[in-house]
Design a binder for these strands. Structure first.
Lengths: 261, 261
DNA sequence: CCGTTTGGTTCCATTATGTGAAACTTTGTC
DNA sequence: GACAAAGTTTCACATAATGGAACCAAACGG
């Protein structure tokens, strides 16, 4: 109905407010949120009350500011442990990182965008969570394209609509048709490249993590720089990455069964 | 109205459903949730649809199961960066961990329970997020008691009501009055101990992180085992922990101000 | 000390939204 | 092919969300 297209129902709106609070990098005042002009005063106020009462937001009475609440952290912890690939994939990422010495990314699809779920850094160990939770574009990253390539038709259509197709570099595929052609190539060869499409000098080789039914439940990539290596050298690792992706997929599959068959 | 007492409004109910999914440790079927008898079929169905559409849940069409969605992970990242003490405290935790070689905990209060926000492990670096989000009891942990001791009266009363006072070990303070006496002692000396009150052999020295107005915004502890050290040895570090807690408090205070005064 | 602005909270008539029993469709089983 | 179990859609109804406006409380400013 609405021009927005998303945010259906009261719940959707409330979650919108949550996102509004989350998108600020610090605790926010009521008026700051109001100034975004998304909801009228009384409505916004009620949502903040409800969310606070529910523990999804926390209210600092000293400052009159709202921040994300502890219930959210608890839910997130559960989400992490339960739904994402990360806990399963962790040892495999370690393995791949040790083997290649390069940066490793594990990502999942989040409504047309790429969510980096875990990461291993080439040089020194990096705090995991500082990286996890970052979102990036799908159309111009290795992991993004690897997952897009295995999306069912309607899901792909919806995802493509959400792409900005901003031309980050000279190599960025900035039209849906160019991307579709690339996706076909990816399906044919089973893995994706990032040919400096997102950032200058950054290249990667990415592999989808496929469920038994062929859906992309995530993607795994080895990333490096043009200064350190070449695309061909990365491609040489593709089979190994596919191996590991397959192992992760298999474990994810069996793990999802209820205790009883 | 409801016997439950909470879950006000549509948003509350939806979040309830989220919790229902979260409380199972794996992906759940529609019928499993339905069997809990909380909501009628159509209602539950609609909530699951909405939450899935919103990315708070993810639906696996192969299995027909719901799990917590990736949007939560994204929100968690924001929560981490924004509201908790963690980003501020991180370097200090590192410092303290390096200095003591012991396990360090950073916690916040969550409705009478303790939420572990960050952790440093004595032996090898531990993945942060795997630890964060864990909740524990307040009445029998060092960080819990340190925070309880600085709670305003009514908040303390409410918090005490929420304590189970389960007797985990022979040392557990298992009555409100015993705990209140202990809290007075903690206020007097400025730090708290855990004398194997939660787990056998686990001892700690914990310090509240106090805002300028005297509210406990968190707590910091150095934890060890009776096999490795003594309470007296831990107490020797108390001043150092207090120092660091004060630094964190100060930085947290200034950090909360908007860019302009 | 009192008008004024700014930021936050409450009211309440209106109406959009959520509700859930029941009907229906699909999928799996014997 | 009939039966059951699981999942999806419908629709008359009632509850719950909506948001303009009024209200309140500090913080200003003269």
């Amino acid at each position: 109905m609405g021009a927005e297209g998303h945010a259906d129902g009261t719940v959707g709106k409330a979650l919108d407010v949550l996102d509004m609070v989350a998108s600020q990098s610090r605790a926010v005042r009521f008026s700051e949120l109001l100034a975004q002009g998304v909801y009228p005063k009384a409505t916004l106020y009620r949502f903040l009350q409800t969310l606070t009462h529910q523990g999804m937001l926390s209210y600092d009475p000293d400052r009159g500011t709202y921040a994300l609440g502890v219930r959210l952290v608890r839910l997130a912890h559960a989400a992490w442990a339960q739904s994402s690939l990360a806990p399963i994939a962790r040892p495999y990422l370690d393995e791949l990182a040790a083997e290649t010495g390069e940066t490793i990314h594990l990502a999942q699809m989040d409504l047309g965008q790429v969510l980096y779920v875990d990461k291993r850094n080439a040089t020194r160990p990096v705090e995991m969570f500082a990286q996890a939770g970052k979102v990036g574009p799908a159309y111009c990253t290795g992991v993004g394209k690897a997952m897009l390539a295995y999306l069912p038709d309607e899901a792909l259509a919806r995802a493509l609509e959400r792409q900005s197709f901003h031309r980050h570099t000279a190599h960025t595929l900035d039209t849906p048709s160019a991307l579709r052609a690339e996706l076909a190539a990816i399906r044919a060869r089973g893995y994706a490249f990032d040919r400096e499409e997102h950032e200058h000098g950054i290249i990667c080789c990415a592999v989808p993590i496929l469920s038994r039914s062929g859906r992309a439940i995530g993607a795994l990539s080895v990333t490096s720089t043009t200064a350190r290596t070449t695309l061909a050298a990365l491609e040489a690792k593709a089979d190994r990455i596919k191996d590991i992706a397959a192992k992760i997929a298999e474990e994810a599959e069996s793990w999802r069964f209820p205790e009883q068959v």
